[in-house]
């Protein structure tokens, strides 16, 4: 592997590391914290609004400049989703199913995966089910 390809992969590892520290620091990995945010009629914990706000706010600023570059620093091109259709059934049905799963469990994919850093009994029920669901979705998407 040449220097260029190795650096590209090191960047993926580095970005993942920063992402994981951010998730754990923000307590996104604690489903109590997540449900405390989603439960707006209970004793509402607005913390997650700041997590999302901080992440989106910073990315809005940086993406604006990054996506004006002719190409990424090491990658060949920007690998962005091609589809632009908004009112697509799969997008809305999928997001609805995701919302139900997130609301009943308190986990979305990133935090569920980050749980592997310190797995508990919940990890071994949720994560295999998440992977099974993803495999089913891939099968449906391929048709």
């Amino acid at each position: 592997m040449n220097w260029h390809a190795a650096s590209e992969k090191a960047a993926a590892l580095g970005a993942g590391l920063v992402f994981g520290v951010g998730l754990a620091l923000a307590q996104m990995t604690d489903p109590r914290k997540v449900l405390g945010f989603l439960d707006i009629t209970g004793r509402w914990d607005p913390s997650l609004a700041l997590v999302l706000g901080g992440a989106v706010g910073l990315s809005l600023l940086t993406f604006h400049y990054i996506l004006r570059l002719p190409r990424p620093l090491l990658g060949e091109r920007f690998d962005l989703p091609a589809s632009r259709r908004v009112l697509e059934p799969k997008l809305l049905i999928g997001s609805t199913l995701f919302g139900i799963g997130w609301g009943i469990s308190g986990y979305c994919p990133g935090p569920a995966l980050a749980q592997l850093a310190a797995p508990n009994a919940e990890t071994w029920l949720f994560l295999p089910a998440l992977i099974a669901g993803s495999v089913i979705a891939r099968g449906i998407n391929r048709d």
Partner: peptide
């Protein structure tokens, strides 16, 4: 809830990409 939740999160995020 964890198993059903995991299935729905995997299926839903997969369909919604």
């Amino acid at each position: 809830l964890l198993i059903v939740g995991g299935l729905l999160v995997g299926l839903g995020t997969g369909l919604a990409r």
